[in-house]
Design a protein around this nucleic acid. Structure first.
Lengths: 255, 255
DNA sequence: ACGGTTGCGTGCGACAGCGCACAATGGGCT
DNA sequence: AGCCCATTGTGCGCTGTCGCACGCAACCGT
């Protein structure tokens, strides 16, 4: 059973703040492919993931895209609400199914403007997000597809209860902003080395330490900076408590 | 003579707030190459540029780098101070000489925590910065050096009083995270087309409209979103009032 | 006026990633 | 059990960018 404490940001809040929010936090299912917000459109809620993973994508006019950041139970989706912009030119898509608590924009702004712990925490998280985006930007320029795939796998399994990722190479290629064939090749190498195994729509990380050495520095830089800004509170686990219930049929859902 | 109003963020503040800050705003010279903050080191001031341009760079372990955003008289350098992180893994370097007002970190935080217009404005600016970084990240991945050079030139002259940029192709290549030869080639094409002219250390934009058509969409996306978030206040000019005093000797300075 | 430094031009070969086309196979679905 | 479609594998040729190694020329300082 997930609780609000499964989200690390919520878990880091003082009891008083959390209590105030608690009644308005609504647990929602997050099917793969669901778009939480679209470039330029107004946001109605912020989302605190517990077991899902959300990708922040930036899409170009010709449809090409790149993932700028990943949000799991370590963060919140929709920072532009309290930053005052209400929308962003980015898109947020559910990348791995699961659940999240959502909170209406109005209440977020209200709570944020009190200036207390909520504000501090949200701003610190936003800075962590900034760092992730910055590192991703440089990574896009300077690192190989092989390295970036490693980085992406690490970022993803950090936010999952198990080392198995349910996704296709095509979707990964959209995230990384590269060709699907490039991912096929990179994944093939990793499998040959025994670092991962995969079958249609599933990737399992077998040798995580090895994966870390093969990844570019970007993974570690982001992880360390995130921990500096948002130390893992003792009352929340680092990964979701519960394994995600396996419901194979719904993996295919796109909305 | 520059005034605090030459910086568009300061100009957008209500009179009361501005008055409170005014006594502590110190006008400082910004020589080219000066590092305002370094990856991971604590910041002591925020800077409100009036006539200088500051580049936000992210540097990798091997020394490779990319520019994530440009800040001129439209913004502020050092957002991590009020975001609560105090430092970032990025670097801020003066890219074009000029002046800026600086404000001690302590006073910024104090003013920010009042939660008034200063907070709102700083947060909105931070979101604009986020957008610029996001767009740059995707641009790094998907657009050619030619297009990116156009984007960079536009971003730069928007923050200068004239269409002449004092810099070397080598420095531009560092900003874009590409080879110097790549910039030479791209600049050569633009010169052949009559869009720019250049001589050692100087680039002049001759045909701005043409440059815009040759640039990728990224320039325009960032400009529009920035204007949405931070409308140009009528009391401040869009470009600095004063021409930068030409002091050729100091262009070579690196600190 | 003149030398030296610094910035620009150019010409390689190498190669990663692209775009396309198509074969092959896994695994739901009926 | 078998079909069929989504997913993965593979093989091209092509292009943009890299890395390196120069030559050249503009400009600065003396």
């Amino acid at each position: 059973m997930p609780t609000v404490l499964t989200n690390r940001l919520l878990a880091a809040l003082p009891a008083a703040e959390l209590k105030r929010l608690h009644a308005n936090l609504e647990l929602v299912q997050m099917p793969v492919g669901e778009v939480l917000y679209e470039s330029g459109r107004s946001l109605n809620h912020v989302f605190f993931p517990t077991s899902c993973i959300v990708s922040l994508l930036h899409v170009l006019e010709n449809g090409a895209s790149s993932e700028l950041a990943v949000v799991g139970n370590d963060g919140v989706v929709g920072v532009s609400i309290f930053m005052g912009g209400l929308s962003t030119p980015s898109r947020a898509v559910v990348q791995s199914l699961g659940e999240a608590y959502r909170l209406p924009a109005r209440l977020v702004m209200e709570e944020f403007s009190r200036g207390g712990a909520v504000q501090h925490l949200m701003l610190r998280y936003t800075q962590a997000l900034l760092t992730q985006m910055a590192q991703t930007a440089v990574c896009n320029r300077h690192h190989s597809v092989d390295q970036q795939l490693c980085r992406w796998l690490l970022l993803t399994i950090d936010r999952l209860p198990t080392a198995e990722i349910i996704t296709t190479q095509e979707l990964i290629s959209n995230m990384l902003g590269v060709r699907r064939e490039g991912v096929t090749e990179a994944a093939g190498k990793l499998q040959k080395l025994g670092v991962i195994t995969y079958r249609r729509g599933h990737i399992e990380v077998l040798d995580r330490p090895r994966l870390e050495t093969m990844s570019c520095e970007c993974y570690d830089v982001v992880r360390r900076e995130t921990e500096r800004l948002l130390p893992v509170p003792s009352k929340a686990p680092k990964a979701p408590r519960m394994a995600i219930p396996v419901r194979p049929r719904s993996y295919e859902q796109r909305s």
